[in-house]
Design a binder for these strands. Sequence first.
DNA 1: AACGCGGGGTC
DNA 2: GACCCAGCGTT
Length: 306
Amino acid sequence: MSAVARTRAALLAWYRGHGRANLPWRTVRDPYYTLVSEFMLQQTQVDRVVPKFLAFIERFPTLAALAASSTAEVLRLWQGLGYNSRAIRLRAVAVEIVERFGGAMPRDADALRSLPGIGPYTVAAIRAFGFDEDDAPIDTNIRRIVHRLCFGIEYPALANAKAIDARARELAAPGEAHDWNSALMDLGATLCTARAPKCLLCPLHAACAAAPIDATLLDARRREHAKKPSPQNAIPFERTTRYARGRIVDRLRSLAPGERISLLDLHRDLQPLLPERPLEELERLVTVLERDGLVACDGAYIALRD
DNA sequence: AACGCGGGGTC
DNA sequence: GACCCAGCGTT
């Protein structure tokens, strides 16, 4: 048995014993579930997605149900997840699939890639998790695992993304896309973590270029190669555009469906949360939210987009 | 290539 | 308090 074959067998065996097979998007094999979960999981941890996913699927059990919904309702269900544009795009995907593909989730990579909010990672994720097609959804977890396994600890980076992705594809177990990629994700979430990896419990320990990783050394190296903080990082979070946008959208979520609020009232209501934000600044933020498709304006009245 | 986009958990 | 997270679209 080759080294690669042993690695595959070891990880798949570990997955059968220690994988999170009970995640709600894994218990039922439905590409629509994969679509919803992958959108929610873009830059958001599993533990926080699980309850949101369950509520979302309960309200929109099928792609057709989602396509028939309103943007405002999807945005309300999205509360707490962040990156609200994902909600807009997810609903738009459902509408487009109904219009362009007769309501059936596409399996074809180019078709998937043509949909809003579906980039290279999500194309591969839908194909691998939703259809068990041999594809490689390579996320931050898998990059970290492959870097450690094939090159050593990731600070400093010893390989570029292209090289890492190539190794990830070589490693993938043919015909087992769903379980193989799930296994890698679970390993990255539970053992081969960014912070303090548990190499002693890892099924790939013997083959790994980085193991055993000393958490203290890893931490020191990370600090050494840390990027400089961006200017926005230097100011308090409450003063950032992100925070202000979040408070505006939250206020609009709290309106009854169909209800609108004037810019003046919005400004007044948000005073406690957004002090020293002049009316003109609030107006600018609302204009950008409208451009982003989250918000609809009618004269001086504002609501979530329908 | 760099930036904007949220929010919550972790150490 | 800094770091991290099943990325994508824009510039």
